[in-house]
Design a protein around this nucleic acid. Structure first.
Lengths: 232, 232, 232, 232
DNA sequence: CATGAATGAGACTTCATTCAT
DNA sequence: TATGAATGAAGTCTCATTCAT
């Protein structure tokens, strides 16, 4: 629908605008280069805090220091904004992990320890993990997002961890187990932690406090020991 | 990207109604007294399917077979309805597990296997896990829910699994490890699975498919082996 | 998009609504039966006055004495509202004309005079003709509307007038001329008049004033005389 | 039903540029002076295609090869731009017709045939007729345009055709009929055609197709025969 | 003069909640 | 009690107009 706005006569008054004494109109700044990043950062914060549907575009704009309309100069819709956030904050992580696995020299236990550490530092401990929470929560209401996120994040991440486990089996370090399922046993506690940090962890709740690093170390020790081939 | 209306790939039957304890004939007279239950069942389904914000009160009412106004006769707001769902559907899962742990006779590995199985059957595989997804996603928009849910669900569940692990250590079956952290390693993959079933698992995405039973068995084997004391 | 409205916490304030001293809240009246007609009448007036795009749904509602939301209870969109107006105000006219042509007894000149008179009284002289103005003006911006209006109004009206002319030819009263083109010569001045009434005619312009009845009589005399077979 | 963006089935070439009177080479220096003309040409095209309200100033600017800001350097608002288009494209059509009528030598039927032909070629078949459509549609949202357009276009055109008819009566060629009304019978079908070309004629609708030349010939024959004095 | 990034009023539509019946 | 018509705040996105560069 192309509404007829600003035909000065349509609604009785000539619509002379923002000329008067509006309180301190935001000074117009031209910053085409830095705007997208500022918007992405603001969007990440708010999507993580409130979820996709409950985040208002106007607030994203305000938090980025621009007006409502400016957001739409850079991203054509809220959905595209969200996708841009995913791409910037998550997609790049996968590549790094793949480099690590491809080039690693030592034994696979060490590889997995490194991988888990990187993954936590770059994903679990950052707002990026909050995006995962949002997707889990709202993907059923936005079917297009499902395919996008699956292709862009879930499948590559699964492939990454599985390939590391497979390396251990191929080199005779690990027992022969279903690699995808082992990959899950590795990833799940970390994701669990990450989700927690962005839901209950962000609320002033008097309950369990979890110390991520210690928890992850324990969990990895457990699984690595479980993976080891029994001594003959 | 438009929101999906009532998809519903998840496991086939609404599972509601299963809690009505009085199986008397549904006469017009009695219905009045079962109204709240029918509303809770309908609300459970829809909250799980769409989340809190995206669930429309009118649809809850329709699915319960009453009018919009009637819903408000029983619950003063959508938020109170949600809290009522949480209370009814989650709060009494814990007790059963505690009975099991208190009375179990065999070795602790078997106890953990039983516990995991029960937990999956009663939580992971039911809509209750869907509520968990919603809470994780939207608790930050609902500050008062956080404490309630932590007290009623999260802390007791943690205590339950921790006490089982502690039993294994006390009886010399397991190595001495931080019990809460081990409890997490046990619970996390199950919760991960359960969340998945209610998010991507319910979308027609061509990506990873997970087989819960097999995955949980693998994961439990892994962890139990990691828990075992090394043979002398 | 399903925005998260009314989650009292999302935006800092609990959103307790319209409870206070709003100035004289419109008394709620339940009038399901009469609402559609009132809305249709208000919509007709405004569409004719301002055009389709420039008419605001809120003003239609206000003029019908209801609130914005109520309009959407009866018509799912502005477009459907417009179509409903067309159907009610125009489609019925055609049928009457067809009855007249089918059952007419006298000579065809008299038939055409009757047809023109009816058409003017029921279409040209009423707001219905204003709808035609709107469609002409905006159809290129709303392609779906083109087919709808063509099927529902233009083609039937053309068929109606053409069939009357054909009758004159068949009965040897008129010369053999291309019937559709003659039909246009009959309809065009009337439509011209009607458009004028809803554009310049509605403005306080100091220019031509046209007296419709007289003008149409002259025009019909002219064309009928032109249609007559030359005397031998 | 979504608005159409830039369809454009109408007769193939934009017809603009045809008015630039100075055919000097388009050097960068000169362009500055032709800017207003290029803007008017672009505006004509778009107003005809989409109407006043639905035309975006940015697209006018783009089509004229300048930036949005530049448009406002030459015309202070969209409305003034529209008025400038009307002034330039319509106001001087009338004079030519008046010359023809003043100097014509043959019988009045021939004069009318010539007049109709010229009028069609210079008005009906050009974008000027599209402006007429827009004015008819939106004049009520533009009160000051009404008087202007009436004085500049409608009244002179009426006077022109009326004076030709009067000539026929004065010379005893035509019956004594109300001249203004006959003038309408002459002009109306042409205007009707012209409007059609810019509304339904420009849509891919499967309905009536009209062949202008043939239709106008039929209509003129009809009216001229109606005008003739009966043979004694 | 020219640019185009920035602004913000305003349009359509949804839905939690109310209240006359 | 129960109903469902009615309300109106709020959300996304558009675009005429402005103004820093």
């Amino acid at each position: 629908m192309t509404p007829a706005r600003a035909i000065g006569y349509i609604n009785d008054r000539p619509v002379s605008k923002q000329m008067s004494t509006t309180p301190e109109p935001r000074t117009r700044q031209r910053r085409k280069e830095t705007r997208p990043q500022e918007l992405l950062d603001a969007a990440l914060e708010l999507f993580v805090e409130k979820g996709f549907a409950a985040t208002r575009t106007e607030e994203v704009a305000r938090r980025a220091g621009v007006s409502k309309g400016t957001l739409y100069l850079y991203y054509p819709s809220k959905e595209e904004l969200f996708k841009a956030v995913v791409r910037q904050k998550l997609s790049n992580l996968i590549a790094e992990g793949q480099d690590l696995v491809g080039n690693f020299d030592g034994d696979t236990s060490s590889l997995l320890r490194s991988l888990m550490q990187i993954w936590w530092d770059r994903f679990g401990a950052t707002p990026a993990a909050g995006i995962h929470k949002v997707v889990i929560a709202e993907v059923r209401n936005f079917p297009e997002l499902a395919q996008f996120y699956s292709d862009e994040v879930i499948v590559p991440a699964d492939r990454l961890f599985s390939s590391a486990v497979q390396r251990g089996i191929d080199r005779g370090e690990f027992r022969e187990l279903p690699v995808h399922e082992v990959a899950h046993a590795l990833m799940a506690p970390m994701i669990f932690m990450a989700l927690h940090r962005h839901s209950f962890g962000a609320c002033p709740v008097h309950g369990m406090a979890m110390e991520p690093t210690s928890l992850l170390r324990t969990q990895l020790d457990l699984v690595l020991r479980g993976l080891e081939r029994p001594n003959p």
